[in-house]
Write a protein that binds this DNA or RNA. Structure first.
Length: 258
DNA sequence: CTCGACTCCTGTTAGC
DNA sequence: TGCTAACAGGAGTCGA
């Protein structure tokens, strides 16, 4: 599913839209637009230029000339298609089919191209001027002091805390499982109970895992991924556990994740 | 404020 | 073979 890594690929693909003027939008799915209606999006976007493309965690942001910011969220099955080119063809847990009927929001440019959000399960959405301060620190560059602060004295399970986008932005289910597996820390530990050396190690492993899987091609390219169904630990061969943590399917090794 | 439970969405897959 | 039900998880809401 799209996590920080995929959204960064999307952002890079969307840079093809830099400097181009929006001539019209298509809004086949009214529910895809959050808080405001089609008229508001039309007024904010038409005749304006895309001046910058930014990303915070899993939120993709397009800065428009004259002020408004278009926020794009991709849920778990959303893809971006810019001028009929998709940076990602196959998405974990989504469909491999390419149905134009799954286009939920489309921006057309005056030069003829387009930026499309194609999302079978409709869990994504677009928003005008999203509250960027509602997102926590960017996971790909998180530092040890930042991680220590966001873990705090929380009595939540560690995995749930790491996936709380208001505290740490960008990690989804697959990235979090892979990171904790690499860091040798159990997802069910209490977030606020990590030792200082564990926090330092974990901050380093978050950055390293994001960087490594970005190079490999996506959040589904982890060493643990192939073992998510009835698998064994690639490190020590132990039978992996499958639990619900923070409401999410969680795969981890009870042998070395302590 | 904190944290867990619940809800929404729909294509895919497991099981009968 | 065909149908049904469970499953996937990002994000918002609600209540203890």
């Amino acid at each position: 599913m799209p996590e920080l890594i995929e959204i960064e690929y999307y952002r890079q693909a969307a840079e093809a839209a830099l400097g181009r003027t929006i001539s019209s939008i298509e809004t086949p799915d009214a529910a895809y637009m959050k808080r405001l209606g089609a008229a508001d999006f039309t007024a904010a976007l038409i005749e304006h230029r895309i001046e910058a493309l930014r990303r915070i965690g899993k939120l993709l942001l397009a800065d428009l000339s004259s002020g408004p910011v278009l926020g794009m969220r991709f849920g778990m099955t959303g893809r971006i298609i810019v001028d009929d080119h998709a940076p990602i063809d196959v998405l974990e847990y989504s469909s491999d089919r390419n149905e134009p009927a799954w286009d939920r929001f489309v921006v057309n440019f005056a030069d003829g191209g387009s930026l499309r959000m194609r999302d079978p399960r409709r869990l994504g959405g677009v928003e005008l001027d999203p509250d960027e301060s509602a997102l926590g620190v960017e996971a790909s560059t998180v530092t040890e002091p930042q991680l220590r602060a966001l873990l705090g004295t929380s009595r939540s399970k560690l995995k749930a805390r790491l996936m709380d986008q208001s505290r740490l932005a960008g990690l989804g289910n697959l990235l979090t499982d892979e990171t904790l597996w690499r860091a040798s820390i159990s997802p069910v530990r209490l977030a606020g109970a990590l030792r200082p050396d564990e926090i330092e190690h974990l901050a380093s492993m978050i950055r390293a895992t994001v960087a490594d899987l970005t190079a490999r091609g996506g959040s589904h390219m982890g060493d643990l991924q192939g073992e998510r169904v009835d698998g064994h630990c690639p490190l020590d061969g132990a039978e992996l556990r499958r639990d619900k943590v923070g409401g999410r399917a969680t795969i981890w090794c009870p042998e070395h994740q302590l």
